[in-house]
Design a protein around this nucleic acid. Sequence first.
DNA 1: TTGAAAGCGCTAACAA
DNA 2: TTGTTAGCGCTTTCAA
Lengths: 346, 346
Amino acid sequence: MKVTLQQIADKAGVSRGTVDRVLNHRGKVKPEVNERVLRIAKELNYQPNKLGRALVMSRKKMKIGMLLQATDTPFMQTVMKGVQDARKEIEAMNVELLVREVSDQKTEKAVREIRELLDQGCQALAVMPKNTEEFAQLINECSLQGIPVITVNSDLENTSRVCFVGQDARQAGRAAADLMRELLPEGGHVLMISGYRHNRSHVKRDEGFREELSRIRPDLHIEGPFFANDDEQVSFSMASEFIQQFPADPRHPLGIFLSAAGVEGTCQAISSCSASESVRVICYDQTDENIRLMKEGYIRFIIGQDGYRQGYEPLMLLFSWFFYGTELPKGERLTEIKIKTSYNIP
Amino acid sequence: MKVTLQQIADKAGVSRGTVDRVLNHRGKVKPEVNERVLRIAKELNYQPNKLGRALVMSRKKMKIGMLLQATDTPFMQTVMKGVQDARKEIEAMNVELLVREVSDQKTEKAVREIRELLDQGCQALAVMPKNTEEFAQLINECSLQGIPVITVNSDLENTSRVCFVGQDARQAGRAAADLMRELLPEGGHVLMISGYRHNRSHVKRDEGFREELSRIRPDLHIEGPFFANDDEQVSFSMASEFIQQFPADPRHPLGIFLSAAGVEGTCQAISSCSASESVRVICYDQTDENIRLMKEGYIRFIIGQDGYRQGYEPLMLLFSWFFYGTELPKGERLTEIKIKTSYNIP
DNA sequence: TTGAAAGCGCTAACAA
DNA sequence: TTGTTAGCGCTTTCAA
């Protein structure tokens, strides 16, 4: 049988209340009592019972806030699934979850949303940050007030965010390069289509890919990266031009690497050139659309970043921290770099 | 605020006890009261509070039993990690976990262990089964007694096991074939080294691999599968002979597919032939040893089956079922087929 | 067939 | 500085 507060209290000749005070550092306790209780707790190897604590906590009104970006993209849908599941669990325990979304690129809009979250009394925050100074300062401000912030998907180093949940984008780029190496013939051509020049994830993937591919396959010719700004029309043009520029056949295929959106446009280009047998595509994010295109034979590999976990884990970490008193992890919690083919995708 | 038993009781003009009786089908209740309570509960969308229930349950003495096989293999170490983590969570809630291990191939030994688990009062079971009639009957027997059984790693279809947690072995074989297709030159040679002829997972992987590879790369020459019976000496000989038999160079490599153990022996063979540049190995299970061999450059791809989850999930499912009253899932819970390269492995 | 009450382990408000 | 007590939501006696 597990050891309880009461048992410690009995052994120490004090009341439960005092033991609670000692173990949780609330209120003043006579030093000698303090020490005695601490010693006995250690002797008995006391582990607080999560359920007891939780039952009490569920009486309080706690709020967790979350800020998401560009929730209309397919990848974000995956993240949202994680958020929804977390919401269910969290709300069952009587904790409120406030989710805000910003779709445009304005920092100020995002900052305002966070302030509103704070005003509404959120005691913990999970945010997909903008990479600006103003935003970084806001996060530091929160920490100062004792409100832990977890960054999601994209990190903000050098702030006092408590941890980061997301992918190592550069390594994800390298992993793609390592797969591409197997797909192309001696002296083959690769086109790199990226997203936004100012998006760190995109750029890091590009860097990782290019640096690793030119190292392990110096014979290949790498074009780009070109930035399609998530515009399918643009990626369509880029891919079309590339395919028409270089001759290819099924035995000597071309490669296309996409570090962001633009997959649909690229595949349409391949389709309209009747080149699906002679172009090998590697792209990111296990979205429904990408999965479909892979099953249709346009995409060879998808690199996944476990969007579900990015939605689910930050919230559950904050929840457990408050509710069960678990420690918040520090530093980076890198989500798995998933390699998906049509054979291991749902 | 969440709706509680008491609120329903108030609204129905009865006591909490009666509401509990109605909602959980315990004891007799006057039909009209029964109906009224049910209606109100639905109206209010009553969801029982897990914590309240759990706190009461933690008073009882519950036991979960688990039967594991061949726990000395590296793969099983991964499973054991999952078991240990589950144990920690489960025991924190005052539920006992009894784990038994059998190392030999005897069915009767395993059956005896299960009977002992039952004698000791286990109310739920997770087992890695033997594929025998006797074992299947034992599982059916348990279900008859109201003891749910979850099969782990290897399934026993046509029994009344409540669900299965493990990999789709045949599909995992196909996934390997799809990777191998990219690694070998026109008319190349592949060696298949398997484990035990009577092990269903091994055989299914073999079947999936062979069937898919010969479909998508009919030009390749496939040797085997040969059964090494998890003996590194044997796999060493097989691999050595294969490498010596067919000429190869880095541009025209050979392929070796291992559906079970024997990886160490195979890599030693490659090493002693100085052929690491010209042999491409695909094997199973993300074990420390395999990871090391991959980092050393002997293995190109590892197909993982999420052994951790196989240890963790069955136990947590049974625990939540008993403790929180959650439903047990039916059918197959297939663990992810993970494709690992040296770029996405820890 | 039903109600009342005890109690799971913990926190927090109040009293001393 | 410490002890007492009232719950949190639920299950489970024990009486009625």
